[in-house]
Write a protein that binds this DNA or RNA. Sequence first.
DNA 1: TTCAACAAGTTGCCACTACAACTATTCCCG
DNA 2: CGGGAATAGTTGTAGTGGCAACTTGTTGAA
Lengths: 164, 164
Amino acid sequence: MAMSVPRMDPLESRAWLALVTTSELLPAALDAHLRAEAGITHFEFMVLSGLKRAKANTMRMTDIAAMVDSTMPRLSKVIGKLVERGLVEREGGASDGRVINVRLTSDGRKVLVRALPGHLAQVRDLIIDRLDRDQLEALADILEPLVERLDPQRNMGQLAASRS
Amino acid sequence: MAMSVPRMDPLESRAWLALVTTSELLPAALDAHLRAEAGITHFEFMVLSGLKRAKANTMRMTDIAAMVDSTMPRLSKVIGKLVERGLVEREGGASDGRVINVRLTSDGRKVLVRALPGHLAQVRDLIIDRLDRDQLEALADILEPLVERLDPQRNMGQLAASRS
DNA sequence: TTCAACAAGTTGCCACTACAACTATTCCCG
DNA sequence: CGGGAATAGTTGTAGTGGCAACTTGTTGAA
């Protein structure tokens, strides 16, 4: 069955190699930078950013997980640590007794605000400022359908609700 | 000093979001697929592929690490497990007594050959076949300079010695 | 020749993620 | 309105990566 899949030609190889390599290096670079500058991971940064944008700085676990494209167990543990550090709070008061609301604390906001300029600068330095407008558009046009295909179930695009 | 870095405009946001998301989802997808089909991670797959291409199916640790863009500790542990599973062998016989040569075994080759068609098919399905020639070229042209920037020290591009 | 600096790999320890099992709550259907 | 199915979230365990410390072997300069 696993019949012969055509080998990659040079152009295909180039594109594929570049994409895989980027996918391995970029997350590591973001983590290292944010960790050094603000003591948080990129994942935590995205969580805190999402909370900051949210109404009342509050979201339920499930929605956060969808936004950052995470599994529940992973998110649960990360939130646990953020609570320990006082960057977010858990609030049980909801009509549905199962849901837990998570709110950004003022300390959390401080950490986020402190992390933001450096992070933005890194993103510009690594990516954005190295591409012209046409390239930015091409990149978005190319990757967006791929993301849709890659995303297990829900397309996390919702977080495109980012005007921040 | 951490002066105001200009916020991202919509186009910049789109491109950035698509790139980060891809970078998070793609490695997970590759790992899941390879693990299910051949019992190896994408990282192990790349190591085995590299060895298969290498002269005498042998490489030294440092060169492997450079090829797959890994730290030595990480590679050392992974090779340890591959040795346990009989997919590679360590050979100490070198002029420089410090270097360890790693060779692909026939079992390792078998696993690799078994994994390859499915992996190729996934790569085509997820990425390559979803892009036309112009897009492939644009993607490569855009990402290659970014990789160069992202890569800590040595540009792993050497593994572009892939004709295989 | 000898000893300090350096290079190649490995190991230990800690943090993080995945997957599965579990608890608690709500829903829904007879 | 009673109870199984489904949903929200947490916990336990094992596997994986990072960083620093360590071991072994090489180099080079006095």
